[in-house]
Amino acid sequence: MSKDIDVSHAGHVATIEIRRPPLNFFDIVLIRDIADALDTIDADPSIRAVVLAAQGKAFCAGANFTAPPSGGFEERPRDTGHLYIEAVRIFRNKKPIVAAVQGAAIGGGLGLAMSADFRVTCPEARFSANFTKLGFHPGFGLTVTLPETIGKTKAALLFYTSRRVTGEEALAMGLADVLVPQDEVRAAAQKLAGEIAECSPLGLLSTRATVRDGLAERVRAATDHELAEQNRLRQTEDFKEGVKATAERRVADFKGR
């Protein structure tokens, strides 16, 4: 097993823990590891529900745009394409997932959180689709999952402003499903997963397949388009300025070119 994740079992619930603290930036390796773990869980009839959690202060702060060329997938467009192939594998998993969002879920990290069926969070958490503030285009299937979860208008608001919303705001708009104190997030996620796991495993698989029918294919089509737009915008001056401004914690001076 990769050192970047840990998989544990308690009763009929499996917990996948991301271990890249403090910010848990992702790359193709991490997303593939999560997809592989979910494939293994799907093949284990004793597991009926999954908790996706993370060490550190963030759930997942997305991709590290400020990493040197050897560091982050965002510097290598081909890797991004492969990463989205791995991401679609996550959406193809068969068993319910509860994400324990104890901190920031930013950019693609929000996309990862949205691959789950439910999100348990806390007031300190922050959710942001911050792509336009980077001069970029949303990815990780968010152009499908966010509108389907919170509605097109609210999703557009998050996309167009790149604003961060708190755990309370996320709960109010339907982005999160349970709000608890920060130190209780994982336990609450495991409690919800345990409640799910008390149900008939065959009934769960059948019902979830119906509820999420076609989702993976919609995400696959979306990521094809998202990737094309990301690769186009990656070449612009605005993208370079957006990344630089974010690293310097200042408002970007975009020129529209």
Score class of each variant (00 low, 15 high):
3 K>H: 14
4 D>Q: 11
5 I>R: 00
5 I>Q: 07
6 D>E: 15
8 S>K: 13
10 A>Y: 12
11 G>C: 09
14 A>H: 07
15 T>K: 00
16 I>R: 03
17 E>D: 12
22 P>L: 05
22 P>E: 15
26 F>C: 08
29 V>F: 13
32 R>L: 02
32 R>V: 05
33 D>T: 06
33 D>I: 02
33 D>G: 05
34 I>C: 01
34 I>Y: 05
39 D>P: 06
40 T>L: 14
40 T>D: 14
41 I>L: 02
42 D>W: 09
43 A>V: 06
46 S>D: 11
47 I>F: 02
48 R>M: 09
48 R>D: 11
49 A>W: 10
53 A>I: 03
55 Q>C: 12
57 K>P: 07
57 K>M: 15
59 F>W: 05
59 F>I: 00
59 F>K: 03
59 F>E: 05
62 G>Q: 05
62 G>W: 05
65 F>K: 09
70 S>V: 03
78 R>E: 11
78 R>K: 14
80 T>V: 15
81 G>H: 04
85 I>E: 15
85 I>Q: 15
88 V>S: 09
89 R>F: 06
90 I>T: 02
92 R>Q: 01
93 N>H: 15
95 K>P: 02
98 V>C: 07
99 A>F: 10
99 A>W: 07
100 A>V: 05
108 G>R: 07
111 G>F: 08
112 L>M: 02
112 L>Y: 01
114 M>N: 13
115 S>L: 03
115 S>D: 10
117 D>A: 01
119 R>Y: 13
122 C>W: 10
122 C>A: 12
126 R>E: 15
126 R>H: 14
130 N>T: 07
131 F>P: 08
134 L>I: 10
135 G>D: 09
137 H>W: 07
137 H>K: 12
140 F>A: 06
141 G>Q: 10
141 G>K: 05
144 V>C: 02
145 T>G: 07
147 P>Q: 01
147 P>M: 07
148 E>R: 12
150 I>C: 02
152 K>T: 14
154 K>T: 13
155 A>M: 07
156 A>Y: 14
157 L>Q: 11
157 L>D: 06
162 S>I: 06
162 S>K: 01
164 R>E: 13
164 R>K: 13
166 T>A: 03
167 G>D: 00
172 A>T: 14
176 A>S: 09
177 D>R: 01
180 V>I: 04
180 V>A: 07
181 P>S: 09
181 P>M: 08
182 Q>M: 05
185 V>Y: 01
187 A>D: 12
189 A>K: 10
190 Q>Y: 08
192 L>R: 00
193 A>P: 03
194 G>Y: 03
199 C>G: 11
199 C>N: 13
202 L>Y: 13
203 G>N: 08
204 L>H: 05
205 L>A: 08
205 L>I: 03
206 S>L: 10
208 R>I: 04
209 A>H: 08
209 A>Q: 10
210 T>Q: 13
213 D>F: 11
214 G>E: 11
221 A>W: 08
226 E>M: 01
228 A>G: 10
229 E>F: 06
237 E>D: 13
238 D>E: 03
248 E>L: 10
248 E>D: 09
248 E>P: 02
250 R>K: 13
251 V>P: 14
253 D>I: 12
255 K>R: 04
256 G>S: 04
257 R>G: 08
257 R>I: 05
